[in-house]
Write a protein that binds this DNA or RNA. Structure first.
Length: 292
DNA sequence: TACTGTGTTAATAC
DNA sequence: AGTATTAACACAGT
């Protein structure tokens, strides 16, 4: 759910509130989410709040508290009225970690409990698994064309965090609609001129979404319950059965890499050659269908 | 009841 | 080595 623009929004929100705050205490209500020892962060001061891919990095003097929201994680910064901690029902909902700061309570809520918090002394582990930031100078057109020398479907490639860090299901659908590329297209079949357009589209769409504080589709929120405004600007995602904004053709929803995928069949045609290639790649292996 | 969902990873197979 | 598929995590909404 939270992709780069949503995580950036959370980071900006946290940064405006908890900078220079010292961590006084930590209460863990669901330990699976909190993969570190409270002692590693207690008494440390928050020096900075940063983002890398979809990770939130809370920089402390001795290392980083690294948080991934996964599907439904969210932060809630509550001000501390007194030394006594009283939470509203809204704040207590799906509450799993409570970090007490000098002037605030930093609450981590997660309906599905997929979110994770780690502690690292440096960012080596993160850097080893993440590709470049799509909004940084590292993300060049030549880099994009290099990773696209692959038979993989373009949607799978764009979702791969080790190739580009931060894109998720919503923005990949948006980018591919913008560029007019079918998500099943083998990446190596996309011509260079299209890759250049895709490169620009990735940056533009992410920047616009950040400006709108992200997309609230199901559960994403920042600052407890504030919603992103990019939902109304989406061109294809969540628009199945509605007319394409460009040509009027009905938007369809299919499965690609096991993910719900929205596209305009007219603007994003799949080359018959691509289709044949895909069939030959799938060596006819029987699908194993799990029936409970 | 059964299926879906903005994410990631490990295991397995080819 | 590179690619594809599946299950798992866990819960709420339809």
């Amino acid at each position: 759910m939270p992709e780069l623009p949503e995580v950036q929004t959370v980071v900006s929100d946290l940064k405006s509130k908890i900078l220079q705050q010292k961590i006084i205490n930590v209460q863990v209500l669901f330990s699976k989410i909190f993969v570190l020892e409270p002692a590693q962060i207690i008494n440390q001061t928050i020096i900075d709040v940063l983002r890398r891919g979809k990770y939130i990095l809370i920089k402390l003097s001795n290392g980083y508290l690294v948080v991934h929201l996964r599907m439904t994680g969210r932060f809630f910064v509550a001000s501390k009225k007194s030394s006594k901690i009283i939470l509203t029902p809204e704040q207590q909902k799906h509450l799993h970690v409570l970090i007490e700061l000098q002037d605030y309570l930093l609450l981590f809520q997660d309906q599905r409990k997929f979110g994770r918090m780690h502690f690292y002394q440096n960012l080596a582990w993160l850097e080893s698994k993440l590709g470049p930031e799509p909004l940084s100078p590292d993300f060049t057109i030549s880099y994009l064309s290099q990773i696209c020398k692959s038979n993989r479907q373009i949607k799978a490639l764009l979702l791969d965090q080790s190739k580009i860090a931060g894109l998720g299901n919503i923005y990949v659908d948006e980018v591919l609609w913008q560029v007019g590329v079918h998500p099943n297209t083998p990446a190596c079949n996309i011509v260079f001129t299209k890759l250049k357009i895709m490169h620009t589209a990735i940056q533009n769409i992410l920047q616009q979404a950040i400006a709108m504080q992200g997309t609230t589709f199901l559960s994403y929120a920042f600052d407890g319950a504030q919603k992103g405004k990019f939902l109304t600007y989406l061109k294809v995602f969540n628009r199945a059965k509605l007319p394409c904004f460009r040509c009027g053709t009905t938007i369809i929803k299919i499965k690609v890499v096991q993910r719900g995928t929205h596209l305009c069949p007219a603007c994003q045609p799949l080359d018959p050659l691509d289709f044949r290639k895909k069939i030959s790649l799938n060596t006819g292996r029987a699908k194993q269908v799990k029936k409970n």
